[in-house]
Amino acid sequence: MIRRLRWWLIAIAVMCVLPLFVPLGFPVSVIRLLVMGSYLAIFAMSWDMMSGHTGYISFGHPFLIGLAGYVTAFLSHQEGFQPPHIVLPLAVTLPLGVAAAVGGGMLFFFPSMRVRGPYFALVSLAFMEILHRLIIAVRPEFTGGDRGLPNLPSVVMGAIPNYYLSLGLMFATAIGLWYVSRSNVGNVLKAIRMDEDVVEASGISTYRFKRFAFLLSAVTAGLGGVFYTHYLASINPRRAFSAILLLDIIISAVIGGMGTIVGPMFGGYFLTFILEYLRPYLFGQWRLLAYALVAIFMVIYKPKGFYGIAQDVASWFQTRKRRSAQYGY
């Protein structure tokens, strides 16, 4: 067990000591970026659990994230829901948010998994858009309408506490999902991705496996969603249900390598960093354009993502080693 987890432990150790270097001049801005990266990584892994493994490409992941975020924001923001004027503590609203993501997902999203391929993508996108519209239009005095709910309470303040919080969430999600992905359950899920009918024909109930993958995905999306909302301390429909967030999640997972958990995790950090890295060099829209170009080239030329690249590199080294052992050069 320890042996299998040793790379994770090393990664956790490295990430945990990073803030200790802040007094020595390690920039806090990088810590902040790592927080953003962690949340994107959580979302990407959550997407990967459902879509990367089973092949049901979800275009509505922000539905789960936004629903969780809105529930906790709505219950905990300063004015409370009125009347009566009740502001619930975060300890109550956070689990309620996650529960909402799971419940809403099971109620609306999961039944849609009856349809496959692009159809599922369309249904999930439709759910996201419908929720977006409903939040804007129905009782905007409660939901904040187009303007959203500003000034929410924070779970913890400051860069470094938030860093540890997001890191803890991220690693918990990553190791949990990674473990599932490498287990037999993960193998069945990947088999569903290849050919669902064949899996069904071999006597395995794909329904149960899909439900399990979906539940895991919804729980992690909900968890990420509630903490992310309180980290940003405001929520509004344009951000929660934007095509940009959706695209960030999908691109992270795709360029990281779908169905590998580790790939999407790396993809989340990579996207966050590349976008910030370009900021001083490319102005305004050029930066977003460059980002999109990088993404499309990755999708077209490296559909297997960084995970595939890493495998290539590993096999390259192995070939060299073998060759040098054989021929002595």
Partner: peptide
């Protein structure tokens, strides 16, 4: 614009 300002107020 308004939303963005409200977003960074925290």
């Amino acid at each position: 614009i308004d939303d963005v300002s409200l977003g960074w107020m925290p």
